[in-house]
Write a protein that binds this DNA or RNA. Structure first.
Length: 336
RNA sequence: GCUGAGAUGGCGGAGCGGCCAAUCGCACCAGACUGUAAAUCUGGCGCCCGAACGGGCUACGUAGGUUCAAAUCCUGCUCUCAGCA
């Protein structure tokens, strides 16, 4: 029976550090579940703070006849997957992530290692662990262009006509969320065209259904976390995020691109346009980052499978290790 | 010292006699989330009672006044800003 370890929690809690530690102990490989660290050339702002002894390696994946080259980082001989897999000029979504993660995780199993899914993007983790049935329904830009002109009431009405069950299932928040409504209509249309043939959960699965999963969540004192975020933003400023942004621009990135909606980048827009001072950028970034951490907490708190740990020291990491070990050594209760 | 403008909830800023516990934005609190998820969206936000319809109390610098009714009109005072001295 296969195993999967998950390390999640809000930003600035030291997920990667813990994951690297556990990877060493259980011969694991890290798979990042982070919607921003996928972008190349975005290092400072997305916090890919890799140790100095990090090396970029290349591996061949896919069929031997037509192999693909996939890059990964190696920290002290521990592999980290999922960084720098997309261009900041291109769109990226859970669907792209899912395809990538499936290939990587399968490969990790092939080498008899333990995949450790690490990240703060709840949806990406969910996609790996539970699968998203409709993830492969392609984006339909033409349809979106039309729908974008409609009001939420009109969108909801349209959805109700196309898929009343889906419409009824939406909560009061999503009924007023144009982005969600548009996607729901997109999916509904695809279902109609393909005669309902998309919702095969098995096809959406990344890991085997009987995979043993251990969910670790890193919990910290909220006030302390806020302070850490404030400090970390200051560090990223002094590390030169502004310069990083300039380089992105000279590489052809623009403010309108999805990658630039990332925290720490988007806040600079008004400053670059001469509207606000750098001090204001810092303040905004900090408060946005704190709000983001709150949103993550809201998401993860709902995930009942998570076992929460406070991890502030080497000692704490050891006690996490102990728990993981118990799970890791557990005999497969079912005859495999 | 004179003249003019203004003082509104944690902040910014509407309202200029009744529909005002007061539009809106920010901040704050809570929540949602199945191809943009560091994205997007929702609710709450003077105090007290109530599950809720609702009710009570205190509030728009301050003290008075006019009025059935005032954040809104009048007067004094205090303070702030601009111009003149």
């Amino acid at each position: 029976m296969k195993k999967l370890l998950v390390v999640c929690g809000p930003t600035a809690t030291g997920k990667t550090k813990l994951a690297l530690y556990l990877a060493k102990k259980f011969s694991g490989e890290i798979v990042s579940a982070d919607s921003r660290q996928v972008y190349k050339k975005m290092n400072i702002g997305t916090g890919k703070d890799l140790p100095a002894n990090t090396k970029l390696e290349i591996k061949k994946l896919g069929p031997t006849s037509t192999p693909r080259l996939v890059g990964y980082y190696s920290v002290d001989r521990t592999c980290i997957w999922g960084y720098d897999i997309a261009s900041p000029k291109k769109e990226f979504s859970v669907s792209h992530y899912t395809k990538y993660a499936r290939e990587i995780i399968r490969d990790i199993y092939k080498r008899n290692k333990l995949p450790i899914l690490v990240g703060g993007t709840g949806l990406y983790i969910k996609a790996v662990v539970d699968g998203i049935e409709t993830a492969n329904v392609l984006k339909n830009q033409g349809l979106r262009n039309v729908l974008e002109k409609l009001s939420v009431a009109e969108l909801f009405e349209k959805l109700s006509q196309m898929d009343s069950i889906k419409a009824a299932s939406l909560n009061s928040s999503d009924r007023k969320n144009p982005r969600r409504l548009i996607r729901a209509i997109e999916v509904a249309q695809s279902k109609i065209i393909n005669h309902e043939k998309i919702g095969k959960p098995s096809a959406a699965r990344i890991i085997d259904e009987d995979t043993k999963i251990y969910f670790i969540g890193i919990k910290t004192d909220w006030e302390a976390l806020k302070k850490r975020i404030v400090k970390r933003v200051e560090k990223r400023i002094s590390d030169g995020i502004e310069d990083e942004i300039r380089k992105l621009f000279s590489a052809g990135v623009t403010w309108e691109m999805q990658s630039m909606t990332s925290l720490g980048y988007r806040q600079f827009r008004e400053h670059f346009e001469g509207k606000i001072s750098k001090e204001e950028v810092i303040k905004k970034w900090q408060s946005e980052e704190i709000k983001y951490a709150k949103r993550q907490l809201t998401w993860f708190n709902k995930e009942k499978r998570i076992k929460w740990f406070e991890v502030n020291s080497e000692k704490d990491m050891k006690s996490v290790e102990k728990e993981v070990k118990r799970w890791y050594d557990e005999k497969d209760d079912k005859k495999s």
